[in-house]
Nucleic acid binder design. Structure first.
Length: 421
DNA sequence: TCTGGGGTCCTAGGACCC
DNA sequence: TCTGGGGTCCTAGGACCC
């Protein structure tokens, strides 16, 4: 019988900040998104104050002043580093692991003898001891149930952070306690429609007629219901599949207006996207570039345009990507709007070095692969942006608002250790 | 004044073909 | 001029996730 554990880091970004700032323990803390835009991670105390996921920072200022809420700018280099440590520790405790996101992983427990709940407790204590991050663990025969078990482990402290949901009777008791919107794969829209149909708990979804679910929603809602009932549909996935699209998009710290400003931004996004693309050893055949004003701006005109630019030949060369992106930008740019965001999305990937050569197609750049490999190596060693397109402004990448960044933090693990010692 | 970024999957509908 | 059904492929948009 299949058996999964879902290990999930508790309030991951906040826990990461607390690791190096003990004074943040026991007080309400949030970590903000890029540009200090909104709260993306909340401590239990912040949740108790009513801070919502994704809530804009400007709406939290009152809590900052009156309730002592502390807001930190995000430090993704730090979180990525800690995530790697958590995952390495977890991977020693099960034969197979699927890293599902920066802060959670499914572990394959099939065939493991002994007390699985005890194993879950060991996962918790080892990650806490070796990395310092608290995790919750849910154990169940399907991924969807393991997710729900993990939700229960977080919700009820008396569980000690581990919930074993192997027993079917226990499954049904928990399903009856969970609102249908808590189920993995059931979001806001679908749970609202389910509620109208009289389905408010996870148990009601698990028991509902499959055909109706499929016809009224889609195949995934049906599968989710069957997974809640113990039928296996979602398997553990090995190694990360190469991405099917790579996006690099940002909101601007301040509104932009001129073509030149947008060219600088788009050049930066195309450059970064190219690095990611080469990281998965693929070439892309098209890219999309978009620019838009803020949907929240009341004044000024709303403007949002995107265009898809095919590349003359499959490429991962920064020069080709930047040229295509700038060409697309030229086509959709118009002076006037207050531009708030832009992005570049790469798509239509093919394996590097394995695409069919069209005799009449333009010739790819000779030596491109070696040049880009050298650029990537230098940037990896000396820091991102050491070598970059000339169009990029010197401060590219740092135009982001990060006013709440802890001054002691660096993105270098070695220096962090020195700070701590 | 101030509202994130990066993904995946599914479906509906149109174009096109036989 | 009128009439049909089915298959495939593509795209845009919606919904979800963290």
């Amino acid at each position: 019988m299949a058996m999964f554990a879902l290990a999930d880091c508790k309030n991951f970004y906040v826990s990461s900040e607390r690791l190096f700032r003990p004074e943040l323990h026991g007080v309400p803390v949030v970590v903000l998104s890029n540009n200090d835009g909104c709260a993306v991670s909340r401590s239990d105390e912040a949740k108790a104050l009513g801070v919502k996921m994704g809530q804009p920072y400007f709406q939290l200022l009152d809590l900052v002043e009156r309730q002592g809420l502390i807001a930190c700018s995000s430090n993704y280099a730090l979180y990525a580093d800690l995530s790697g440590r958590v995952m390495r520790t977890l991977s020693t405790m099960a034969p197979r692991i699927e890293v599902y996101s920066i802060d959670e992983a499914f572990l394959d427990l099939q065939g493991i003898q002994g007390d699985l709940e005890q194993l879950g407790r060991e996962m918790r204590s080892r990650v806490l001891r070796e990395v310092g991050i608290p995790v919750g663990v849910g154990i169940a025969p399907t991924k969807t149930l393991a997710k729900l078990a993990n939700w229960a482990a977080k919700k009820w402290p008396a569980t000690g952070g581990v919930v074993d949901l192997r027993d079917p009777a226990r499954q049904r008791r928990l399903l009856a306690l969970a609102e249908v919107g808590e189920v993995w794969g059931i979001g806001r829209k679908i749970s609202a429609r389910l509620n109208v149909m009289g389905i408010t708990t996870a148990l009601q979804l698990a028991d509902f007629d499959r055909k109706t679910l499929r016809s009224m929603f889609n195949v995934n809602v049906e599968r989710t219901a069957r997974e809640l009932a113990g039928e296996l549909f979602f398997a553990l996935e090995d190694g990360p599949e190469p991405k099917q699209m790579i996006a690099c998009t940002r909101s601007f710290g301040e509104r932009k207006h001129t073509l030149q400003e947008l060219q600088e931004a788009v050049t930066g996004y195309a450059t970064r996207a190219g690095e990611k693309l080469r990281g998965q050893r693929q070439l892309c055949q098209a890219l999309q570039v978009f620019i838009r004003s803020s949907p929240f701006d009341q004044r000024g005109e709303a403007y949002s345009r995107a265009t898809c630019v095919p590349l003359p030949f499959p490429s991962a060369d920064t020069r080709d990507l930047v040229a295509a992106a700038l060409g697309g930008l030229q086509a959709i740019y118009r002076p006037g709007p207050d531009y708030a965001k832009a992005g570049v999305i790469l798509m239509d990937f093919v394996e590097s070095g394995r695409f069919t050569q069209d005799l009449f197609a333009p010739t790819p750049r000779p030596g491109s692969e070696r040049l880009m490999a050298a650029v990537d190596a230098i940037n990896a060693k000396q820091g991102r942006g050491t070598i970059k397109p000339a169009r990029l402004a010197a401060d590219q990448g740092f135009s982001m608002k990060r006013e709440r960044l802890s001054p002691r933090f660096t993105t270098s693990w070695g220096e962090l250790l020195q700070v701590k010692c």
